[in-house]
């Protein structure tokens, strides 16, 4: 699996969401797309999924340009609280299962049990934490080549985070999948990452292996990110 963003730019009205982004990802790694809210991380994930289209540049998955159909190979967890409210937990899983050939029912039911979700529960009446968990179940249960998580921990308490991290590590198939996590919670995510990609105001300002940052620079990812952001601000002035 090769996933590439070539010279991607994207505008929303007057707001430049992404500026000339070049990036590539490969199987077997966990990447962190790091940056404050509104820095363009979500747009990047949607571009990879084929849910939005670039103004400039191309996104390719295994050499093929990304279209609406690409979602077949990409499991995307949105940061938004998005469900069909009329559905129960079971119906939600059923619907996603019907739409994706790579949906692994066995994984789904394991995940449901582990995250303590009942098939009969109404989505409408779930707590925020449980809605976050349900989103994760429908995303991780897919044997997709690419798994994208947009702020998977935001607004969830530490217990839920912990259970989510554990499920992630347990169910990702590192031989066939790549995991890309977009988040502004840099410290929390650091131990999970192979590579950190710093996004700031729609530009990629840095990319490093997490362990070599620590080994060679003696820096945590957050320290590194702050340094880059300051440099970027100074350069802009």
């Amino acid at each position: 699996m090769v996933l590439e963003l070539n010279n991607i730019s994207k505008k929303y009205g007057k707001n430049q969401a992404l500026k000339h982004v070049h990036l590539s990802f490969e199987t077997g790694k966990i990447y962190g797309l790091l940056g404050p809210n509104g820095s363009g991380k979500s747009t990047m994930l949607k571009l990879i999924t084929g849910l939005v289209f670039p103004d400039e540049g191309t996104v390719t998955l295994n050499g093929e340009q990304v279209t609406r159909k690409t979602i077949e190979k990409v499991a995307y967890l949105t940061e938004l609280d998005m469900f069909y409210d009329a559905f129960s937990v079971g119906e939600t899983v059923e619907y996603v299962a019907s739409q994706f050939a790579d949906f692994n029912r066995e994984k789904a039911s394991l995940l449901l049990t582990e995250l303590r979700l009942e098939a009969s529960q109404k989505v409408r009446s779930l707590s925020k934490g449980n809605r976050g968990r349900l989103k994760l179940v429908t995303t991780l249960a897919r044997d997709a080549e690419v798994i994208l998580l947009d702020e998977p921990f935001s607004g969830l308490d530490p217990m839920v985070r912990d259970s989510i991290v554990k499920s992630l590590l347990k169910y990702i198939d590192f031989e066939h999948q790549v995991l890309i996590i977009a988040t502004h919670e840099i410290n929390e995510i650091e131990p999970l990452l192979d590579e950190a990609i710093a996004i700031y105001h729609g530009t990629m300002i840095g990319r490093e292996s997490v362990e070599s940052l620590r080994e060679e620079e003696g820096q945590s990812v957050l320290q590194w990110f702050k340094q880059l952001a300051i440099k970027q601000e100074e350069g802009a002035q």
Partner: peptide, 13 residues
């Protein structure tokens, strides 16, 4: 997360 880590030392160490 399961563990807390210091900022400067590699996590694997």
């Amino acid at each position: 997360m399961g563990e807390e880590f210091q900022a400067s030392k590699p996590i694997y160490m």
